[in-house]
Design a protein around this nucleic acid. Structure first.
Lengths: 386, 386
DNA sequence: GACGAAAATGAAAACGTTTACATTTTTGGT
DNA sequence: ACCAAAAATGTAAACGTTTTCATTTTCGTC
């Protein structure tokens, strides 16, 4: 029965060809028994267990995960769909995901959609039968719509809040984009700025949308100064050029994310515009590197690894406790971090305060920027939630 | 036969329960036929193909990847084993991997070992039967030894060169650590430094080892000043403290990687040591963010995404063309990028050269350090005396 | 129209596991 | 020792595909 060419080799060498049958034969038992010792299932005698273990060792047998998944109907793998792999944002998300999935002995299979809905769909199809659940960051509403059809029967957690049409809702977890943008804008207003330009994110991006709304809400009747952007460094650079042409010139720029803020900073520097003396600059995300810029950048700290970790936790819960619970949207708190790039406007357009005017939020601290792991941390201010 | 509870649902809704059998039944054909149209295999009539396609559409059937892998004996997935997920290095590697694997319609399953050999081993075992090949960055020699036993029969490419004992060699691809360190050290010597401290990487790390050798080779008879480090920011910080206590004080610090250079920069800044006036500072890797530091950091540019891409290419080649070829080690060229953090020592200890002395290694390119994708860049300084 | 070849389809085995169930062995009470 | 019950082990079906091989259908040719 089941004759397959066997090679007698150095036992330490894993030969992919060895199956549970080979082990069974070597130990003189049935495959069922081998399976039982493998899974620690009850009825198995010490003596035979020994024999089996020995055979496993001898043959350097490693169970075939694929076959196991098939019959157990669980892959212990979760799929991650991201727009791309640029910048620190995504690696931090993955880190958070990894942190909790590894505890539960799950693996991660990651794929980048590059913003194309059709490749996203292809990846989703390819993942069927290879994952127990999905974590998805859909880059825009369009894609979200395309995907949601495929995602009905498999547990999924989105990394941003999107309302499907007709209230078909999924689990989602996101940072408080609206509250963060609100807080930052209020902070800028508070230290005396009036003409605050906002550099938007890409159309259809739900995070970008929420940030814009936060800005608008805070600005109220004060004239809005909105410039198009795309969350990329180069987009920020271009946006800065537009801002500088505005008449009268804004005294502060609030970038929809840090990457754009970096581009903006470059543009300003090139043109000899000083930050924060001539223009204040703020970002959003607080990616680790911005504290090392000069001037260090004020931003909204988003708990990115926690975002990933939270998503993983929710997903695993849903997977493991048969999906009875109804979907919920969770929002993570953010933190306003004032650094050197924001200061009261040079020539107060309003007699609001002296040069030493303190922001309503705590003052920017001279920040000697260290990563969490090590030294001194900047002081933060909590944003007021709406 | 094969009675399974069927639900009549919105056809657009993917029901994980639908199998090829359901499609076959709906189209009034055998599962073999369905399989054939699915895979575009020759003998199938236009009319029945239609029927089958219709049924597939109707039931929103998606083939089960796991089952397919099992019988085809290919998973179209490759595994990636990394030490951790901190910093830009790893996401860039993954980006490179993704770029080429996606073209070949392969997926990526990533796992972090966190430097623990036993969890690395567990992950490898879990991957058996779920991947067609592996890309591994083994954090140290010890781990490498532990893993190599498991990796005999499955194609694998290492992201660093390690000599197994007894010449058991694997495919590997790496950047030219030795050459880069050599060049940077020579460059520092060339602009007049004599006391150049080197901050080492973790013991047992092969990249760190090679960089150290490069430094040593360049220094020749000049006294070596080596300080322990661990490739982390905080490690750099601590190393800087030690360096500052050296007597006489070094005029330049060459950090084994950029992360440590950042930590060093913080430490120097805190203590009021000016860079490059008091001490020159150089890193290794040229991760994107260092060009934004002030002063912008001189470093060795390593083609990180290309590293990933190259690994993927080699691996896929090996997978697809039955592994006849013998393992080879590939080394990617690096580039010295001189920026503002390095300059000739303030008080030349030797009348070695004029102010304009060029390094023996290729001259630093005036680098406007563009990210591949784009745009705006800060202006960089060519190393020269102020 | 019948015949054979070619084309299309179907039946069943296979991939490497787990597990329900059947069977054998052990055990303990008498 | 013997018998039933309990414990250990074995048999075979199942997971959802692909593919070989056998079978049926189609078609052109005489």
């Amino acid at each position: 029965m089941n004759v397959r060419p066997k090679v007698a080799r150095d036992p330490k060498v894993t030969d992919d060809g060895v199956t549970i049958h080979d082990v069974a034969r070597a130990a003189n038992v049935s495959i069922a028994t081998v399976s039982r010792v493998l899974n620690g299932n009850p009825p198995v005698t010490g003596k035979t267990r020994e024999r089996v273990l020995e055979a496993i060792q001898e043959l350097a047998y490693v169970p075939h995960g694929g076959a196991r998944s098939l019959i157990k109907r669980e892959t212990r793998t979760i799929g991650v769909l991201l727009p791309d792999m640029h910048g620190e944002f995504f690696s931090e998300v993955i880190r958070g995901l990894d942190q909790v999935t590894r505890q539960h002995h799950y693996s991660l299979i990651v794929a980048c959609t590059h913003g194309e809905a059709e490749s996203a769909e292809a990846m989703l199809r390819a993942m069927h039968g290879k994952v127990d659940g999905l974590v998805v960051l859909s880059s825009d509403l369009e894609m979200h719509a395309a995907l949601s059809n495929l995602l009905r029967r498999i547990p999924v957690v989105f990394l941003n809040h999107v309302q499907g049409p007709g209230g078909d809702e999924f689990d989602s977890i996101s940072v408080d984009n609206h509250g963060g943008a609100l807080a930052m804008t209020q902070y800028l207003l508070g230290i005396g700025h009036e003409r605050i330009a906002f550099v938007k994110g890409p159309d259809g991006n739900s995070d970008a949308e929420a940030r814009l709304q936060g800005y608008r809400e805070a600005m109220g009747k004060v004239p809005h100064l909105e410039v198009a952007g795309d969350f990329s460094e180069s987009g920020g650079y271009r946006a800065a050029c537009k801002v500088l042409q505005m008449e009268p010139r804004p005294t502060a720029i609030f970038a929809g994310n840090d990457a754009m803020a970096i581009g903006i900073l470059c543009a300003l520097r090139e043109r000899g515009v000083r930050v924060p003396e001539d223009i204040s600059l703020a970002g959003f995300d607080d990616i680790p590197m911005i504290r090392y810029l000069s001037p260090s950048l004020s931003s909204i700290r988003t708990p990115i690894p926690e975002l990933g970790a939270g998503a993983a936790e929710r997903l695993l819960m849903r997977i493991e406790s048969g999906e009875a619970i109804r979907p919920m949207q969770q929002t993570l708190e953010v933190l306003l971090v004032a650094r050197a790039s924001t200061a009261p406007p040079a020539a107060p357009s309003r007699a609001a305060g002296s040069e030493k005017t303190e922001p309503r939020a705590k003052p920017a601290t001279p920040d000697n920027g260290a990563k969490p792991s090590a030294p001194p941390l900047p002081t933060h201010t909590k944003p007021r939630r709406k």
